[in-house]
């Protein structure tokens, strides 16, 4: 027989399209998945209102959600990193470091403060270069970096204190009519990032790098540059997170945001993002951050001791992820 591997690539010898019925179903699941973050937020919100009806007011929401802004910003920072298939374990201490710089240099000698913050962002970009060029796992590099950030922060501000610049405090205590400021700010952040990452032509390149880095390289895009840009953006949002945080607390501490690392990861995932594959959602991430911030208040209203809170938040995360897995099951296998 002189059949030369014909069988393998015979035009007939391929798939049969029999999934049109499945597509409708998959779309349904997709909408369901997209709505899941919103649904969890509503559930936590309703539960909170039920536990403490007085929170159902402009003032109550404002108070409960005030820390949502820095968390949302840190979550967006984490999302940028996750977009390119990496994970940032240093965002919490980094936000703490920014807080320390903000409460000292930025207040005393603004120019020096701005330079220091710009250096922080540059350090993030450099971290991306290190990760990419040396082919190191991002988890290891960022975990190492987290101790560096913490160390510098302790050097700058050995004990809690400092003073946030007045303009920061002014921004963070802004009053907006009807809808509380944190909600407006969070939505504005989400919308801005959505336009940049989800609809702009450069956002496509960023997400594509998470989806199929090889294809991007073949199309002539530099993965190094994309990663550095994404890390620099993460640094920028980390800086914004730190500044908004001390705008609320008015003073700083090196450990002020240690929990943010996990909040940020949880927020991205709660919001429908995936650890790999460049599938992220800015609105989802911000909603995830709001959910986590609210969950904290809810647990306090339920008189659950702070010691148990992290565990309880973990439970919420597991429940939502389990629901997502449930939605995913049965989705057409390919």
């Amino acid at each position: 027989m002189t059949n030369y591997g014909e069988s393998r690539n015979h035009p007939f010898l391929s798939y049969r399209d029999c999934e049109s019925r499945m597509t409708a179903l998959a779309l349904n699941r997709k909408t369901l998945r997209a709505l899941l973050p919103l649904l969890s937020l509503v559930i936590v919100l309703v539960a909170t209102f039920y536990a403490q009806p007085r929170t159902m007011s402009y003032f109550g929401l404002n108070l409960m959600l005030q820390y949502a802004v820095p968390i949302a910003l840190a979550t967006i920072a984490q999302m940028f990193i996750i977009t390119v298939n990496d994970l940032d374990l240093s965002i919490g201490p980094f936000v703490g470091l920014v807080g320390c710089i903000g409460a000292t240099y930025l207040n005393d000698t603004p120019l020096l403060g701005i330079v220091a913050l710009a250096l922080c962002i540059a350090a993030y970009a450099a971290m991306a270069a290190l990760i990419h060029l040396r082919n190191l796992p991002s988890i290891v590099v960022t975990l190492g970096a987290s101790f560096v950030w913490l160390g510098i922060a302790v050097l700058i501000l050995p004990s809690p204190g400092g003073k946030a610049p007045d303009w920061l405090k002014a921004i963070m205590s802004l009053q907006v009519p009807v809808v509380p400021f944190p909600i407006v700010a969070a939505l504005a952040i989400a919308a801005l990032v959505h336009v940049g990452l989800m609809t702009s032509s450069y956002g496509v390149i960023m997400r594509g790098t998470g989806g199929n880095p090889r294809a991007m390289a073949r199309a002539g895009w530099s993965e190094l540059r994309t990663k550095m840009a994404m890390y620099a953006l993460a640094g920028l949002f980390g800086v914004l997170s730190g500044l908004s945080l001390i705008g609320l607390t008015t003073s700083a501490d090196a450990h002020i945001a240690d929990r943010y690392t996990l909040y940020a990861i949880a927020g991205v995932i709660l919001g429908g993002g995936e650890f790999v594959g460049g599938r992220v959602s800015p609105f989802g991430a911000v909603i995830g951050a709001l959910t986590l911030a609210l969950a904290g208040s809810f647990l306090i209203f339920m008189r659950i001791s702070p010691d148990w809170q992290i565990g309880a938040q973990g439970a919420i995360l597991i429940i939502v992820l389990a629901l997502r897995a449930l939605i995913n099951t049965g989705e057409a296998r390919r």
Partner: peptide
Amino acid sequence: LSLCPNLTLVENARIT
């Protein structure tokens, strides 16, 4: 194949 699975075909066209 070198399409990015997380992008739409329109977005994949942008890449090249």
